[in-house]
Nucleic acid binder design. Structure first.
Lengths: 195, 195
DNA sequence: CGATTCTTTGAAAACAGTCAATCTGTGTGG
DNA sequence: CCACACAGATTGACTGTTTTCAAAGAATCG
């Protein structure tokens, strides 16, 4: 059930053969998370590549004041994890937990890298994902450089409508770098446009 | 002269053979930019991979009010360009211009991708760069989520001391997402710590 | 329901932005 | 060598946006 979604994704995004899909499946483990359960906790080392097949998780830091800052969300067919910890082998600054009961496919670092070496089509797909992730984060940086609270929210609405009624509003605020109160006010204002 | 820096960089970062280095050199073109000269102008399609061997360039957008928002800087041994336009083939939203007289190595997309296919060590290096770029941009997003103007500046000081007396202060402000006036005040405050 | 979680609202304060003027340093041409 | 122009940096006064803190209102769920 869980691997179905993942293998369909791979087929859609690449030319990986059915035979190679079996190799990938052999290295995949299914991870179930209940709502609020951690996938990764600050201070732990992250050792996987993770793909969400069901549900929704968030990646966030907690600052000295105890305020959470959401780095990103991941729903079905999105990847998640902490690349920095994965690459460096150092403890992560991030927490990842589930916003809903969720299912993920995990592939540990070593087997994953082996799969990439063995299966060029897989490697190519993975690289394309990395490239698009990078572009997306550059884009997000632009929003911080140039947009007001309201503009950031309106752009979020357009870009991620799937997340609107799935993620608590306060978390969207956190993702946008504003307070829940500000987001609430921004929503009120932008409902009645100036006449 | 220009290619020297690039080939030294490749040797430091990878196991590319001298023979393969010649292949790379064959596809490289040297581009000289005078101060203020554009490497890329908004609306153009970006078709290269670019490596700075001398000088300093910046990547930025200009909003409706005419305000510049600096996406990043690149000095010696840094890469630059617009990956989004390169990947999509669409016109770029960015401008890139030189802050000093500069020299870059350009390799057009097609030859570059061919080199990656032919030279696994080169491909590996390029991928590592992409991975680290992604991590760096995730890190920058965190600064926008959690830091004040002053904290962002202090972190910039630590992280990029090479840029401090090389890039006009107003541009650093733009990079941090604050106004030049605010940066000036932040600097004054942070010189006299609280007694 | 009753309890928890999430959202909204209000008033005050903090922070950063705007606009305009002044100051500083650098380089150029007379 | 000086005077001037120019770009960059600073300062002051003011405005505006966003945050903070506290409380009240929905919404959701066992």
């Amino acid at each position: 059930m869980g691997f179905e979604v993942f293998s369909q994704y791979i087929k859609d995004k690449s030319q990986v053969s059915d035979k190679d899909l079996l190799l990938i499946e052999a290295q995949s483990q299914l991870k179930r998370l209940r709502k609020r359960q951690y996938l990764l906790q600050e201070g732990e080392v992250w050792r996987f590549n993770a793909f969400v097949t069901k549900g929704c998780v968030r990646t966030y830091t907690v600052d000295e004041k105890g305020i959470e800052h959401i780095q990103n969300f991941a729903i079905e067919n999105w990847w998640t994890g902490d690349r920095e910890s994965l690459l460096s082998g150092k403890p992560s600054r991030f927490n990842i937990d589930a916003l809903e009961d969720s299912e993920l496919i995990l592939i540990a670092k070593q087997p994953f890298d082996d799969l990439c070496k063995k299966i060029p089509a897989f490697s190519g797909m993975v690289n394309g994902i990395l490239e698009r992730s990078f572009i997306a984060s550059q884009d997000r940086i632009q929003t911080f450089l140039s947009l007001s609270a309201e503009e950031k929210y309106l752009q979020f609405l357009k870009k991620y409508p799937q997340l609107i009624n799935r993620v608590p509003q306060a978390m969207i605020a956190s993702y946008l770098g504003i307070t829940p109160e500000t987001l609430s006010r921004v929503r009120r204002e932008s409902q009645r446009p100036k006449p």
